[in-house]
Computed example of a mutant assay.
Amino acid sequence: MTTYHELDPVEAKISAQDVSVFYGDKQALDSVSIDIATEYVTAFIGPSGCGKSTFLRTLNRMNDTIASARVEGAIKLDGEDIYRSGMDVVQLRARVGMVFQKPNPFPKSIYENVAYGPRIHGLASGKTELDGIVERSLRRAGLWEEVKDRLADSGTALSGGQQQRLCIARAIAVDPEVILMDEPCSALDPIATAKIEELISELKGRYAIVIVTHSMQQAARVSQRTAFFHLGKMVEYGKTSDIFTNPREERTKDYITGRYG
């Protein structure tokens, strides 16, 4: 049973209903239901192995890459079931982008890292338009001023924090509607982390953003909605301020006060 706090009515960008995930015989996620809106950054918190990253991966069918994975329930993007047969998964992942825990730029130039997606999706009619998309994406990711004179350099030569912002630029270059972030700062130092958090705040409202984080301080800083996961279930969901100052579930309270996790 999940406890839902009172929330302002907003239109759901993604709506998940009774989503369960199995890896072979093992159930990793049990009947998760949540609405995710563009207006807010939504954080998933909880101890390791609680199902939060598994659930994040269902939102753009990343679990499809695991042979033993099976997803039950419904996940709708703008009212359309993303697990229906005939769904174009490549197109889905352009609409619902993913930024991983460890920065993973392509072994290509900074320019090509950002240009790759728009080029394969046919979003630019020529070099000038592609140049514009690359610049705009790098500006939105707060990276343009640092790299504009070395766009031909390899993306892997950047610092860890710059590489993560390059991966965010790569995700937003295809004009997604949702950005999923799986612990995007866990491999970064505090200064790089602060830059990513600032960037998340700037992108809020332009995209529906979902972040999985082990840092409760980070969730409190960047999100307006928080879901607490424990042992494969979503225990409690509501405004971030309510979850952190007035949790209704004992398990949430225990996690937030550091009794376990």
Rank of each mutant, 00 (worst) to 15 (best):
L92V: 07
N63C: 06
V212N: 02
E249F: 11
I82K: 01
M234G: 00
P105L: 09
G232H: 00
S241N: 11
M1W: 12
Y207I: 04
I110H: 00
E135L: 08
Q163E: 13
A173M: 05
I45M: 01
D189S: 10
I133R: 05
A187Y: 06
E250I: 12
F44D: 02
K26H: 13
V32L: 04
G155K: 00
D242N: 14
V89C: 08
M1Y: 15
K253W: 15
I200D: 02
M216R: 07
R251L: 08
D149S: 09
E236F: 05
I110R: 01
T245W: 06
G132N: 12
S15I: 07
R140H: 13
P176Q: 11
F22R: 08
L151F: 06
V235I: 15
F228K: 05
S48H: 12
D18I: 05
Y207R: 04
C50V: 13
F229Y: 05
I168E: 02
A208D: 00
A220C: 11
F44M: 11
A94C: 15
Y260M: 12
T65W: 10
A124I: 07
T245I: 10
E11C: 13
A152D: 15
V114W: 00
K127N: 08
T42A: 12
A141K: 01
K204I: 07
G258T: 10
A74N: 12
M234T: 00
S68Y: 06
F22Q: 07
M98A: 08
Y237A: 13
K102F: 10
I209Q: 00
I82P: 05
I179G: 01
L158W: 07
S20I: 12
V90H: 12
Q91M: 15
I209H: 00
A192I: 09
F244W: 04
L143E: 01
G122S: 14
K52V: 06
E236A: 09
A115Y: 04
T42R: 03
T54L: 05
I196V: 14
F55D: 03
F229V: 08
V90D: 10
T54H: 01
P47N: 11
T38L: 14
K76V: 05
R93H: 06
P190T: 05
D64S: 08
I243N: 03
L56F: 05
G97P: 10
S33M: 14
N246I: 08
V114Q: 04
D242G: 06
V212T: 08
A43K: 02
V222C: 05
G238I: 02
I75E: 00
F44C: 08
T58Y: 06
L166P: 02
A219D: 03
G132A: 13
V235H: 01
D64L: 07
M62Y: 10
V32A: 01
G160I: 07
I191M: 12
G117Y: 00
R251E: 13
R139L: 09
D81S: 10
S159Y: 04
F55V: 00
A208N: 02
A94Y: 12
N104I: 03
I209A: 03
E177L: 13
L123D: 10
E6I: 14
K76G: 02
P190R: 04
S154G: 15
F244S: 03
T65F: 15
L151R: 04
Y207H: 09
R57Y: 01
D81P: 01
D242M: 02
M181D: 02
M234N: 05
G97C: 03
V96K: 04
S33H: 11
